[in-house]
Design a protein around this nucleic acid. Structure first.
Length: 740
DNA sequence: GGTTTGAAACTTTTT
DNA sequence: GTTTCAAACC
């Protein structure tokens, strides 16, 4: 096999340059993954052992894709190549050597929700009013500090007489202490602590420097300072570091990405080779030129001349609508007509938008029009309440020091242990400086807590039992045991609502994820599963073998491509966002938004449609936005559609409602529908055709005898002793029972 | 100790 | 318009 076949001269050079620092400036759609994969193959052809090669990406999806393509090209030996995200690489290193910097190797990983809970506790302890200062404010400040590798101590020293900074320093310190006590790390800690480990322990550093002789980093423009430091350390020995990126696609500044990592690569590594990949294989000329026209308005970028041999193609379509409702309607209809004509499959189409909130309206229309779709992002599957509850059980079994997890589930399902009791035990544990769970095991030591013991004991015994049975049960078995023994699912079943049914579905999906995890990993462990779950993003679950339209934010779309793309909500104030327009450094912020627009445009292969709405509901208020400045930046000969200069219209308060209703009749329809539903519930109350002592039939639980009927005001609460599933309490209007 | 109700915040983007 | 959180009530 000739490795260089089907590669252009620059791509070939990138593949052949194996030694020393290498910067590949890869424009959108220029085949960078291809280059990386071939480069790996070339290294191995040159006799480099696969376990000496490392490839780092940002998302699991990107890692998975690269893994697959490497496997296809190379076959045997490829599985020994370390292909992983930044975060999972760090976890792997820390699980092995984390004890050297004072963490248990079974540390928990806290997601954004978890850190918020911790922060809440911290602020409560420090008597900081969360009305004045929000958790997010501190979490953002701490995250920024961590991204710059500033420790709590260093932060405190740098404050001087700055009161606001000192306050943050105090919070930072306490937050970190709690995380340590819980044996937990947040996303930033994973990177920071990994760098700390490598810096403090020459033995470990040497081990990994020897192991990773050839390192490749994808999406380098989005690395932050810690990630740079990590890469610098790992590549420190041989300096065989190859980074791939595009400064025009840097869109994560808000997350600490430092664009100077890529702009100054040649300064950091003076003998670096620089290769530019400028031929685009993805898009039509029209789309590419539109993208170039937009990005051209940014200053301070590495000038590139992205070109393509592809056909000219159709112009970029632009359509403006009166309301977001009509915009969504158009997109749905347009997709349907294209699918009907056979131009595209559903999976060829993607709708991109600036904010997650925009997905709702689109979703409603897609349901009406019967279009299969998948929304990426928004509420993460793993942050759903029911999934987090089960996860907390797993974490408790895995890491007894994880107080957050234990406290979450000690009263789920209800065990009669309320907030007051939890607080008391927390104080007791804090006083003795021990984990919450340990305190639960010795309540009899404190006379004030002794009476709690009876309620707590079954829970403690259950966790201990699960812990001892874990080797036999496996991860999936453990989950099943937890669902059954705690009666979590049974409780939801008894509720009988649609919402409860959806929750059960989520739990079952979670269970099947555990099953497939165990199928995929021979050495499956509970810790391994928790780790995978903690680091997974929604985008990772995209499956191109199924036929559905994908809806997602512009951020989530990076790295993907679709034949037919829609960019919705092209309005000033939405995109570019109101925040960026009014920011202090508005020029820089709008440049970042423009890069985001560039990313969006370059996702399209054949056809791109931009849409905007004159009026849009945001937070229950109608907003009137002008057409996005980015649309106007597209050269007019490439644009199919008029861009009207719309006057900003302002209505006095008392008129505010009127135009909304005219423009968008759905709101007047919706309300009566909701009212009718409530009305129906009330009527059902009177229609109870069974009473105490009667035999009844339930669709799920089978037959049983009515024990009692209590009038709960709005509804009857019925208790039934079922023949097969025992005694259940439920509401008459939901449990569709009939007398027999 | 648990449940219900009403207010308040939320919406920029995420590993 | 929706979700989350605390106070008031049971």
């Amino acid at each position: 096999m000739n490795l260089l076949e089907n590669l252009n001269p620059e791509q070939q050079r990138a593949v052949m340059t194996t030694e020393g620092p290498l910067l590949i400036l890869a424009g959108a759609g220029s085949g960078k993954t291809r280059v990386l994969v071939h480069r790996v193959a070339n290294l191995m052809a040159n006799g480099v052992e696969p376990y000496h090669i490392m490839a780092i990406t940002f998302t699991n999806k990107a890692a998975g894709e690269m893994r697959e393509r490497i496997n296809n090209l190379i076959g045997t030996g490829a599985e020994q190549i370390w292909v992983a995200t930044f975060h999972s690489s760090c976890v792997r290193i820390l699980r092995r050597y984390g004890d050297r910097i004072g963490y248990g190797t079974n540390f928990s990983i806290y997601d954004t929700d978890d850190t918020k809970t911790v922060m809440k506790e911290v602020l409560k302890k420090l008597n900081i009013d969360t009305k004045k200062f929000k958790e997010r404010y501190f979490l953002n400040a701490i995250s920024s500090a961590k991204n710059e590798m500033i420790t709590a101590e260093e932060y405190a020293l740098s404050c001087g007489s700055d009161l606001a900074k000192s306050r943050i320093a105090g919070v930072y310190r306490e937050y970190q202490a709690r995380m340590r006590a819980n044996n937990a790390m947040d996303f930033d800690d994973l990177l920071v602590e990994c760098v700390n480990l490598l810096k403090q322990d020459p033995e470990v550093l040497n081990f990994y420097q020897t192991k990773f002789q050839y390192i490749m980093v994808d999406e380098y423009q989005d690395t932050n300072t810690v990630q740079f430091e990590l890469v610098r350390l790992l590549a420190g020995g041989r300096q065989n570091l190859c980074v791939v990126g595009d400064d025009d696609q840097s869109i994560y500044k808000f997350r600490g990405a430092n664009i100077y990592n890529i702009l100054n690569f040649e300064k950091h590594f003076p003998d670096a080779t620089v290769i530019k990949l400028e031929q685009n294989y993805r898009s039509t000329k029209a789309i590419l030129d539109a993208a170039n026209g937009v990005i051209h308005n940014n200053e301070g970028r590495k000038e590139k001349a992205l070109w393509t041999q592809n056909e000219q193609g159709e112009r970029v379509k632009f359509k403006q609508f009166d309301s977001a409702y009509e915009e969504a309607q158009f997109i749905a209809m347009d997709i349907n007509s294209k699918v009907r004509k056979g131009t595209y499959d559903y999976k060829d189409c993607a709708v991109l938008y600036r904010t997650n909130a925009q997905s709702r309206l689109l979703e409603e229309k897609f349901i009406v029009e019967n279009i299969p779709y998948k929304i990426v992002g928004g509420v993460n599957f793993y942050s759903r309440k029911e999934v987090k509850d089960i996860l907390a059980y797993l974490k408790t079994v895995d890491n007894a020091q994880d107080d957050l997890a234990v406290r979450r589930i000690i009263n789920v399902p209800k065990r009669g242990i309320g907030q007051t009791s939890i607080d008391r035990v927390s104080d007791y544990a804090a006083a003795l400086n021990m984990p919450f769970f340990d305190a639960l095991m010795q309540l009899q030591m404190d006379p004030a807590l002794k009476k709690l013991e009876k309620k707590v004991e079954p829970f403690v015994l259950f966790i201990q039992l699960m812990r001892s049975q874990l080797p036999d049960l496996g991860v999936a078995g453990l989950i099943r045991e937890i669902i059954d023994q705690t009666g979590y699912e049974a409780e939801l079943e008894a509720e009988g609502t649609d919402e409860a049914a959806a929750r059960i579905e989520n739990i079952e999906e979670f269970y099947s994820k555990a099953v497939s995890y165990e199928e995929e990993h021979e050495d499956a462990t509970l810790g391994g599963f928790l780790e995978e779950v903690a680091l997974i993003a929604d985008i990772d679950s995209l499956d191109d073998s199924e036929d559905y339209v994908v809806l997602m934010t512009l951020h989530a779309a990076k790295g993907l491509e679709f034949p037919n793309v829609y960019m919705a909500g092209m309005e000033d104030g939405l995109f570019p966002s109101y925040m960026s327009i009014t920011a202090d450094d508005s020029v820089a912020e709008i440049e970042e938004e423009r890069r985001l627009c560039y990313v969006g445009i370059t996702r399209a292969m054949k056809q791109l449609t931009m849409t905007s709405a004159k009026a849009r509901m945001v937070r229950g208020e109608t907003q009137y936005g002008a057409v996005s400045r980015f649309v106007k930046e597209i050269p007019s000969d490439l644009l199919d559609g008029e861009v009207y200069e719309q006057k900003q219209r302002f209505f006095p308060d008392f008129l505010d409602d009127a135009p909304t209703q005219k423009i968008n009749p759905i709101f007047t329809q919706k309300k009566p529908m909701a009212a009718a539903k409530n009305f129906g519930t009330k009527i059902e109350k009177k229609a109870l055709d069974y009473g105490e002592g009667d035999r009844v039939k339930h669709p799920k639980f089978g037959e049983g005898e009515v024990i009692s009927v209590i009038d709960g005001g709005r509804d009857y609460e019925v208790t039934v002793e079922f023949d097969n599933v025992g005694r259940k309490k439920m509401f008459a209007s939901f449990a569709k029972m009939t007398k027999i």
